[in-house]
Computed example of a mutant assay.
Amino acid sequence: MAEQTNPFGDLAKVLEQFKVPGVDMSALVESRKKDIEAIVEANKSAYDAMQAFARKQTEMLTQAMQDIQAAAQVGATDPGKHAEVARNACLKAVEDIKDLAEIARKSQVEAMASLTKRANEHAAEIQQMLQRK
């Protein structure tokens, strides 16, 4: 695995050359670094949810194939059970849809919590910078 470099260290050095009165460049760079970290955290949450969503869909497909095989075997021996098999398949589909919706909801809540937390921190940083003057 390649060694990761810190792009913020280089940026801080470049920005330090531009001495702007009343602006703390290192604080500005640190604040932007925290913004990017919050975005990375939100993206990780979304990626994890996407994987969980795909796992659930794979599980649903596998179960559906097994149910189809079982229904075919039952139908060959007892044709009267078709209604029960269909009813059970519908109930299972509704449960699976609820599970998928919960995975999506949880992902959105986690991503928004991360971004909201950083937005609140950012607002506090701005207020603190304005009070210094």
Rank of each mutant, 00 (worst) to 15 (best):
S45Y: 02
S45L: 08
S45E: 10
A46Q: 08
A46L: 13
A46C: 13
A46H: 06
A46K: 07
Y47M: 06
Y47S: 11
Y47D: 05
Y47C: 10
D48Q: 04
D48S: 05
A49M: 04
A49I: 00
A49Q: 03
M50T: 03
M50A: 12
M50C: 05
A52W: 00
A52G: 01
A52N: 00
A52L: 00
F53M: 00
F53W: 02
A54K: 08
R55G: 00
K56E: 07
K56N: 04
K56D: 02
K56G: 01
Q57S: 11
Q57T: 09
E59D: 05
E59V: 03
M60Q: 12
M60P: 03
M60T: 15
L61T: 14
L61D: 10
L61V: 15
T62E: 14
T62Y: 14
T62L: 13
T62K: 11
Q63G: 11
Q63L: 15
Q63H: 12
Q63K: 12
Q63A: 15
A64N: 13
A64F: 13
A64E: 06
A64M: 14
M65H: 13
M65C: 10
M65D: 12
Q66R: 10
Q66K: 11
Q66F: 15
Q66C: 06
D67R: 09
D67K: 03
I68T: 10
I68M: 15
I68R: 11
I68N: 08
Q69W: 06
Q69V: 07
Q69N: 07
Q69P: 01
A70G: 07
A71F: 04
A71K: 02
A71L: 07
A71R: 03
A72C: 09
A72Y: 07
A72N: 08
A72E: 05
Q73Y: 12
Q73P: 06
Q73T: 15
Q73S: 14
Q73M: 15
V74Y: 03
V74P: 01
V74W: 06
G75Q: 00
A76L: 13
A76M: 10
T77F: 10
T77D: 09
T77K: 13
T77I: 12
D78V: 00
D78N: 08
D78Y: 04
P79A: 02
P79L: 03
G80V: 13
G80P: 03
G80R: 15
G80N: 14
G80C: 13
K81Q: 12
K81Y: 04
H82W: 11
H82L: 14
H82C: 05
H82Y: 12
A83L: 06
A83K: 05
A83C: 05
E84G: 03
E84H: 01
E84V: 05
E84R: 06
V85K: 11
V85P: 06
A86M: 05
A86R: 02
A86I: 06
A86P: 00
A86V: 07
R87E: 13
R87H: 11
R87C: 01
N88H: 09
N88Q: 12
A89Q: 09
A89E: 10
C90A: 11
C90R: 08
L91A: 01
L91C: 00
K92D: 03
K92C: 01
A93S: 13
A93Q: 10
A93I: 01
A93P: 02
A93F: 15
V94R: 04
V94F: 09
E95S: 02
E95V: 02
E95Q: 01
D96A: 08
D96E: 14
D96V: 04
I97F: 11
